[in-house]
Design a protein around this nucleic acid. Structure first.
Lengths: 193, 193
DNA sequence: AAAAAGCCTTGACATTTGTCAATGAAAAGG
DNA sequence: CCTTTTCATTGACAAATGTCAAGGCTTTTT
C-alpha cells in the first residue's frame, strides 16, 4: 500500500524513511467499486484522493441532465473538488469510479496538520497544484483556440492510456462535444487515411 | 511602490515588517506602456508579474493569425507563462499591456532564492496558484458545459471591472468566440428586456 | 484638422455542432 | 445462457457559430 503515492511524492520531493513513516500516519486507504461515488454533488469534499489503482472521473450534471466531465484520474493521479475541500462549501462536482479503484486519501484535517508539521508536504502540494494548473491551462487553451478534431488528436496523443480505457462518449464529454459529434469527427479522420 | 503587492501578500500570509523588507530586496519594479510586450512568444518567461496598476493580457496566436486570450490581469492580479517560467522552455504565450502599467516582477532567480530562505513565500505561492487553479477550473467548466450567452453573463458578473475596461472583441476571444458572435449574443440579450 | 486605425455592428451565407430517433454490436448482470 | 444495459454509429434536420464584406462611429496618430 501507498507504493505509488510515495514514489510520486519522492519524484517531487525526496523523503527520508522517517519522514515517509510520519506522513503515512496521516493517510487513509480506501477501495472503491466501479460506479461507486467518492463524492456526491452537494456534499462537502472531505479528502484529496490519490489513485493507486483504477480510474475515476469528476463531472457536473447540467439542467438538461447532461454530464460534463471535468477530469479523469488514473494510477498516479490525484482527484478532488479542491474548492469544496478548501472552503468546506458543498461540492459542485461528483466523483465516481470508472473501474474498481484503490485510493490514498488525505483528509482535510490531515492536510492541515501536515502543512503545519512537515515542510516537505507543503512543497509537494505546491508542486502538485502547479502541475495541475499548467495542465489545465493547456487544456483551456486547446478548448478556446482549436477545432474539435485537433483537440481530439491532441487528447489521444497526450493521454493515450485514458483514450483506451474510458468510453468514447466520456471523452466527448471531456472535450465539450456530444458523442455523435465525436463519432463523426473520428469518421472523417478515418476516411482521410 | 509595492503597496498592493504586500497588501495581497499579507491577506494570504501575514508578514512582519522585517520579512517584508527582506522580500522587497528580491522584487523588481517595472513600468510598461500600453501595447508594450512583457513577454513575446518564443522567449523564455523570466518573471512572474504582479500588477500594481494597469491591465495586461496573455494570448496565443494561431496559424490563421487569430488571437486567443488566455488571461487578463488588472490591479492585484498576477500574470506569467508559468510553464515557461518554471521549465525555462520557450513561451507559448505572449503578454502585453492593454493600458500603461506598473508591475512588480519576481525573477526566476529571486523566486528560487525566496523559496529557499522564506517559508512564508512558499505558502504565498502555494495559495496563489491554488486560487488560480480553482478559478481556471471554473472557467473550463463553464466552457464545456454552458452556452455562449450564459458564459458571457457569468463573465460580466464575475469580472465586471474587466468587462468595462477591455474591448469586447477581446472578451469574445477570451470566451472562444468571434467578435461577431459575441455582438449577436449581446443583441439577443438586449432585445429580451 | 485631417487621416488612419480600431472597434462594433449587421447582412448573407457556409460550416460546425447539436438534437432526435433508430439500429446493431458489445458488455454487464442475473 | 439469456436478458438488459451500455455504447458507438448513422441519417435527417435544427440551431449555433464562423466567415466575409461592408458601414459607421470613435479614438489615435500624424
Amino acid at each position: 500500500m501507498y507504493e505509488l503515492f510515495f514514489q510520486k511524492f519522492n519524484e517531487k520531493v525526496p523523503l527520508t524513511l522517517e519522514e515517509q513513516e510520519q506522513i503515512k500516519t496521516y493517510l487513509t486507504p480506501k477501495k472503491l467499486r466501479k460506479r461507486q461515488y467518492l463524492l456526491q454533488d452537494g456534499d462537502v469534499c472531505k479528502s484529496i484522493a490519490f489513485v493507486e489503482k483504477g480510474a475515476l472521473r469528476a463531472y457536473t450534471v447540467d439542467e438538461n441532465m447532461n454530464e460534463h466531465i471535468i477530469q479523469f484520474a488514473i494510477e498516479g493521479w490525484t482527484i478532488s473538488d479542491l474548492f469544496s475541500y478548501l472552503t468546506a462549501e458543498p461540492a459542485t462536482y461528483t466523483i465516481d469510479a470508472l473501474e474498481d479503484a484503490e485510493l490514498v486519501l488525505i483528509t482535510r484535517a490531515a492536510h492541515d496538520e501536515l502543512l503545519k508539521t512537515q515542510p516537505k508536504y507543503e512543497t509537494y502540494i505546491r508542486l502538485l497544484i502547479t502541475g495541475a494548473y499548467i495542465a489545465l491551462q493547456r487544456r483551456l487553451t486547446s478548448n478556446i483556440s482549436l477545432p474539435a478534431e485537433e483537440r481530439y488528436t491532441r487528447f489521444t496523443e497526450t493521454y493515450p492510456d485514458i483514450a483506451q480505457r474510458v468510453p468514447q462518449h466520456m471523452i466527448a464529454s471531456y472535450m465539450g462535444l456530444t458523442p455523435e459529434t465525436l463519432s463523426r469527427v473520428r469518421k472523417k479522420m478515418a476516411e482521410r487515411r
